[in-house]
Measured scan of single mutants.
Amino acid sequence: MALNTPQITPTKKITVRAIGEELPRGDYQRCPQCDMLFSLPEINSHQSAYCPRCQAKIRDGRDWSLTRLAAMAFTMLLLMPFAWGEPLLHIWLLGIRIDANVMQGIWQMTKQGDAITGSMVFFCVIGAPLILVTSIAYLWFGNRLGMNLRPVLLMLERLKEWVMLDIYLVGIGVASIKVQDYAHIQAGVGLFSFVALVILTTVTLSHLNVEELWERFYPQRPATRRDEKLRVCLGCHFTGYPDQRGRCPRCHIPLRLRRRHSLQKCWAALLASIVLLLPANLLPISIIYLNGGRQEDTILSGIMSLASSNIAVAGIVFIASILVPFTKVIVMFTLLLSIHFKCQQGLRTRILLLRMVTWIGRWSMLDLFVISLTMSLINRDQILAFTMGPAAFYFGAAVILTILAVEWLDSRLLWDAHESGNARFDD
């Protein structure tokens, strides 16, 4: 018995066209964080690309023209004298008006014999932002004059995390709450300039795509075929072959399989920071003279006294001054041990922890910024005066060393310790 099946006739004509040209192939790229070699397709503007294995951002879609970056830099340069030299806060102490600005706080630190601690604050609040705007201006002028731009481009990517104007702005709020127990506070004209400078700096850093600047100024022929001998440069993120001198053909720094002496430098910085954190938390970090009496505060006791007036601000200072430094030390110690013992479990967790400490590390400088600003506000000789204690130097040095330890660690070593050939990683 035959089955009668109805015929289905399409209502619209289906047209099949042959592909007349070869589909576009992607360029081969190595991930600078996990060293995976993959094919990167062509990316349009405002599109980002991520590593298929570790999800690290390979290409950032946010990109401004150099002219727009230069305009932002010149605007920031105009704001800087007002943000640093004009009063941020006014207080009335014992019937006398006192003005506080950024430069005055750094000068008070240096004047009291601790120039190293003052230079830490100076670099993060004044030096690094000033280098940022002058570097962008150098790129703008240098591109037109045919100057060598490689050193500036190499420095810009590392400079971003040292620009800490946003953290200093939080420190202004913390210092205001600490001082309000002794005097009446009012915002100064410099505060508005400083807030504007923070906003412009944040926007500029978020749109400063150094890798795209490398592509514009020093374009290189990408690798179009897969080759395990391809290496990625950690300076400019170019994937290719080393030249005859073993250097990256684009930025001219040595092109090595792994960062040289990464573990040794990381261990040295980490152990030194552990040693410095002990006096930083045991010795007094601030000293207040009130009517001839002397009151010393460690980091913890200062947080407890701050909690009596504002528990939320005390929580912020606790996280930045105690929780973050010790968390960074514990995480980095764990990561280094996992590399030495070739741990194969929990790779995803370790990668996330490394990215976390990379982002939060700079916030530990908050305590030094609060001390710097408070020193310029309260300084009335023996009637009422505020000065920093010996722990300030140890704390600042420990924070900087932990930042350097994270920067010096080559994250690809975590993958080397893991089993080879993993296309995915999980716990």
Score class of each variant (00 low, 15 high):
Leu3Ser: 13
Asn4Met: 09
Ile14Leu: 12
Thr15Glu: 09
Val16Lys: 14
Arg17Gln: 13
Ala18Tyr: 11
Glu22Asp: 10
Glu22Gly: 08
Leu23Pro: 04
Arg25Leu: 11
Gly26Phe: 10
Asp27Leu: 12
Gln29Tyr: 08
Met36Phe: 14
Leu37Glu: 12
Ile43Pro: 09
Ser45Ile: 12
Pro52Phe: 04
Gly61Leu: 15
Ser65Asp: 05
Ser65Pro: 05
Leu69Ser: 14
Phe74Ile: 10
Phe74Trp: 06
Thr75Met: 10
Leu77Asp: 09
Leu79Met: 12
Pro81Cys: 06
Leu88Lys: 03
Leu88Phe: 10
Leu93Pro: 01
Ala100Asp: 06
Ile106Glu: 04
Ile106Cys: 02
Trp107Thr: 14
Gln108Gly: 14
Met109Arg: 02
Lys111Gly: 14
Gly118Val: 02
Val121Tyr: 08
Cys124Asn: 03
Ile126Ser: 09
Gly127His: 01
Thr134Gly: 13
Gly142Trp: 02
Asn143Phe: 15
Arg144Leu: 14
Leu145Asn: 04
Leu145Ala: 09
Gly146Asp: 05
Gly146Tyr: 01
Gly146Ala: 04
Leu149Cys: 15
Arg150Gln: 02
Leu153Ser: 06
Leu154Tyr: 02
Met155Trp: 03
Leu156Tyr: 13
Glu157Ser: 13
Leu159Tyr: 00
Leu165Cys: 15
Asp166Asn: 15
Tyr168Lys: 14
Leu169Lys: 03
Val170Thr: 15
Ser176Tyr: 04
Lys178Phe: 00
Asp181Arg: 00
Ala183Ile: 05
Ile185Met: 12
Ala187Ser: 15
Val189Met: 13
Val189His: 13
Phe194Ala: 13
Thr202Val: 11
Leu205Lys: 15
Asn209His: 06
Glu211Pro: 13
Trp214Cys: 15
Arg216Thr: 09
Phe217Asn: 13
Gln220Phe: 05
Ala223Pro: 08
Thr224Ile: 09
Thr224Gly: 06
Arg226Gln: 07
Lys229Pro: 13
Leu230Asn: 08
Leu230Met: 10
Leu234Gly: 06
Cys236Met: 00
Thr239Cys: 06
Tyr241Met: 05
Tyr241Trp: 05
Arg245Trp: 04
Gly246Lys: 11
Pro249Gly: 05
Cys251Ile: 00
Arg259Trp: 03
Gln264Tyr: 01
Lys265Asn: 06
Ala268Pro: 01
Ala269Glu: 02
Leu270His: 08
Leu271His: 03
Ser273Tyr: 02
Val275Cys: 07
Pro279Arg: 05
Ala280Leu: 07
Asn281Arg: 00
Asn291Ser: 15
Asn291Glu: 02
Gln295Asn: 05
Ile299Arg: 00
Leu300Lys: 02
Leu300His: 10
Ser301Asn: 14
Gly302Thr: 02
Met304Asn: 09
Ser305Phe: 08
Ser308Met: 08
Ile311Cys: 10
Ile311Leu: 09
Val313Arg: 00
Val313Pro: 11
Ala314Arg: 14
Ala314Ile: 13
Gly315Val: 10
Phe318Met: 05
Ile322Thr: 07
Ile322Glu: 08
Leu323Ala: 04
Leu323Cys: 14
Val324Gln: 07
Phe326Pro: 04
Thr327Asp: 02
Met332Cys: 08
Ile339Pro: 06
Phe341Lys: 09
Thr349Lys: 14
Ile351Gly: 13
Leu352Gln: 09
Arg355Ala: 15
Met356His: 10
Val357Asp: 10
Thr358Ala: 09
Ile360Cys: 05
Ile360Asn: 02
Leu368Ala: 05
Val370Phe: 14
Thr374Ile: 06
Gln382Thr: 14
Leu384Ala: 02
Ala385Val: 07
Phe386Met: 02
Pro390Ala: 09
Ala391Tyr: 04
Ala397His: 03
Glu407Ser: 08
Trp408His: 04
Asp416Met: 04
His418Ile: 10
Gly421Pro: 05
Arg424Thr: 14
Arg424Leu: 09
Phe425Arg: 13
Phe425Tyr: 15
